[in-house]
């Protein structure tokens, strides 16, 4: 949940990039880090294995500036997608305000996408949260693959009712990276407005 720090007059939001292994979550954060102006970002922290797979998380703080006298910040995290790192994924979801689900367009990853979404629902439930109540968008990544599945097929698996905002992306080339981030951020702010 968003936290307000009266002592420092700050409002902080936590956004988490979720999805199966190698779908491109870390690539998203690297791209955001590379394209946001220096004064609006902090250091990126990556806890990864030797072969650059996420071990615990990546972290990138973004600074939106002052809103009504409050310094407003988004903390971006990725989870490790590999199945056996579930304990870490669950920890990262603590206090989450919004989720970007990064799906892989490769035909042989369709099932991994579905499994990861199921896993996300389970882990959210452990924190007393459900996807329906949470700002949530889907990024269908790796659209550049020659054998990329049709987006509608991926949507049918991840969002059969067609209720979640969905963005196509080639994260590696910085295509479709900013849109889902901006969309989920706006949803988080809208939710805040409803509660206030």
């Amino acid at each position: 949940m968003s936290t307000i720090n009266f002592a420092a007059r700050e409002i902080n939001f936590k956004l988490v990039y979720y999805g199966p292994g190698l779908s491109g979550k870390t690539t998203n954060l690297k791209q955001i880090h590379a394209h946001v102006p220096v004064e609006s970002k902090g250091e990126m922290v990556s806890l990864q294995t030797e072969d650059e797979r996420t071990l615990f998380f990546d972290f990138l703080p973004l600074d939106l500036g002052k809103v009504n006298g409050f310094k407003t910040r988004f903390h971006l995290y990725t989870v490790p997608g590999q199945v056996f790192y579930n304990a870490s994924r669950r920890l990262i979801l603590r206090g989450v305000d919004g989720v970007v689900f990064v799906a892989d367009s490769a035909p042989n990853r369709l099932r991994a996408n579905a499994e990861s979404l199921r896993n996300l629902r389970e882990n959210l439930a452990e924190h007393g949260l459900s996807l329906g109540d949470l700002p949530y968008v889907i990024q269908v990544n790796k659209r550049d693959l020659l054998d990329a599945l049709p987006v509608e097929m991926i949507r049918a698996v991840l969002d059969p009712d067609g209720v979640s905002p969905l963005f196509e992306a080639v994260a590696q080339q910085h295509v479709g990276v900013i849109e889902p981030l901006k969309a989920v951020s706006k949803l988080v702010l809208e939710k805040l407005a409803q509660r206030a």
Binding site: I11, L64, G65, V67, N68, F70, T72, K182, S185, K186, L189, E190, L192, A193, A196
Partner: peptide
């Protein structure tokens, strides 16, 4: 707040 923050986004 949300409108202002949205504009900054």
């Amino acid at each position: 707040f949300s409108a202002h923050a949205g504009a900054l986004l």
